[in-house]
Design a protein around this nucleic acid. Structure first.
Length: 473
DNA sequence: TCTGGGGTCCTAGGACCC
DNA sequence: TCTGGGGTCCTAGGACCC
């Protein structure tokens, strides 16, 4: 009837089994990190650009502070456009009548991912301390299942004093402050105090509601959605606010007359499934506050890739050089992580934005930079005559030899400096390369090539982020 | 909006096998 | 050789997320 899957599990959202899930979402994280080391940026419009260098107009906005967003600067916007809306402070010259008003300018900074990762590791330390069960989704976002640390019980017990307790952050009808709210406040303030950067926190009985809640009052928000009020909380929000609804699905839903999460929750799930497949059913459940996914740790990666934009060109030499460089970088990163791959692929983007992918699987897993380049170039041949604006190389079907849960948990922290040990569980890539990897590859003599020299694997500081972007120019 | 880079998951069709 | 069905693997593309 209502799409419940098992008898007895429908409509039990007020059950005692309700979990307490926190979603921690750092506020304009990169900009906050810059402010941490440059306090004079506090309160200023700050734009952090990737592929951006001081004085240039190239690149895209990675993060804009809320002050910059007030000028219309948005994430992923080209820097050139951001500069039109918010000129650079450096260009404000009091002696030049044509110069922009300093009060309407912003600070532009290039991404410094290594520094942000340092800050993020302090955030993670707090998160680890506050929850045994957690999922770190990205550098600035995590889910925490804190059911065993707190509960939905109403705080304050019998006292109910007439003092001035902080107003409840609860959404929906349940106006009372819960223990969960207090716990979330504790996590939030610890992050701010110990890592020095602000976070928004959402609290709900499931992941997707917590995610929406953390977003509902940014920045510096704390929104609590108690069990039983999830559907009411979501109902007025546009469908695009539901996690998993992007521009395409939003339009499809709009065409069906579905504009809000409430509309979605009231829709016919079979009709949704007809339009959107299984995702339709999943979104339907989500909009109704029904999301039973467990908070599980992030696993090992499924693929590694690098891509790079270039001025549109059909020149074969340029394309091949670009692909070779990307291939070398991907292979190096795979080796740093002690990971074998069985599929090698490329991505070719033609103007205006036509994406092509090609991939080839090998008989067995390998760690072979030369082969990555060879296969990638071979796949590129098909596009010898086309103009391209972006090229990419990817390895997938990854095999992490001898990996165990300990290294799995340490993966995020360990990948930063490629072999430099971080406090826990990280493997030394050199050691792994020397031993276990060889054993593993030995089972695949036809394509394995552990004997290759390591010229590609020179310890050129973590190739992530923009430092290495320069390589392809 | 003329779209940066690194990912995940899903779907659909074809090959191949039993 | 008129004709079934199930399962798995592979590739390509699409949608979405941060």
């Amino acid at each position: 009837m209502s799409g419940g899957t098992l008898p007895g599990t429908a409509a039990d959202t007020d059950d005692a089994s309700d979990r307490v899930v926190l979603h921690v979402d750092m506020d304009c994280f990169y900009a906050s990190c810059e402010r941490l080391r440059r306090p004079e940026l506090a309160g200023e419009p700050v734009v952090v650009g990737m592929g951006y260098e001081a004085g240039e107009t190239i690149g895209a906005v990675a993060t804009a502070s809320y002050e910059a967003r007030a000028f219309g600067v948005e994430s992923a916007m080209p820097i050139s456009e951001a500069l039109e809306r918010l000129p650079r402070r450096a260009d404000a010259d009091p002696d030049d009548p044509d110069a922009p008003d300093p009060g309407k300018t912003g600070r532009y900074l290039p991404v410094d991912l290594d520094f942000y990762k340092d800050v993020a590791s302090e955030v993670k330390a707090v998160v680890r301390d506050c929850a045994d069960t957690r999922r770190e989704v990205s550098i600035d976002e995590a889910y925490l299942d804190v059911t065993d640390r707190t509960s939905w019980a109403v705080a304050g017990g019998g006292t109910d004093d007439d003092g001035t307790p902080p107003p409840s952050a609860a959404a929906g009808p349940a106006d009372a402050r819960t223990l969960a709210e207090g716990y979330a406040r504790h996590v939030k303030s610890r992050i701010e105090r110990e890592a020095g950067v602000p976070a928004s926190v959402g609290v709900a009985p499931n992941m997707s509601a917590a995610k929406v809640a953390s977003d509902a009052d940014k920045p510096d928000g704390l929104v609590v959605v108690p069990p039983g009020s999830v559907a009411d909380f979501l109902a007025p929000l546009p469908t695009a606010d539901v996690h998993g609804v992007g521009p395409v699905t939003e339009r499809t839903l709009a065409d069906m007359g579905i504009e809000t999460a409430g509309d979605l929750a009231a829709a016919d799930p079979e009709r949704l499934a007809a339009e959107l497949g299984d995702r339709g059913r999943a979104l339907y459940r989500r909009a109704r506050g029904d999301d039973d996914r467990d908070v599980t740790p992030t696993g090992l990666p499924k693929s590694l890739s690098r891509e790079s934009s270039l001025p549109a060109t059909a020149d074969g030499e340029t394309k091949r050089e670009t692909v070779s460089a990307l291939a070398a970088d991907v292979a190096r990163r795979a080796r740093e992580r002690g990971c074998l791959y069985r599929t090698i692929g490329i991505k070719v983007v033609e103007p205006p934005f036509e994406v092509n992918t090609r991939a080839r699987s090998l008989p067995g897993p390998v760690d072979d930079p030369d082969l990555v380049e060879e296969v990638a170039l071979d796949l590129l041949d098909e596009f010898a005559d086309v103009r391209v604006r972006k090229l990419g190389v990817r390895v997938s079907k990854l095999d992490f030899a001898e990996s165990d849960q300990a290294t799995l948990a340490g993966f995020d922290a360990a990948d930063r400096s490629g072999g430099e040990t971080e406090s826990f569980g990280s493997r030394s890539t050199d050691g792994v390369d020397g031993n276990k990897l060889t054993d593993w590859v030995g089972a695949e003599p036809s394509v394995g090539s552990e004997g290759h020299d390591r010229s590609d694997a020179r310890p050129r500081r973590s190739g992530d982020g923009q430092a290495s972007l320069d390589e392809w120019d």
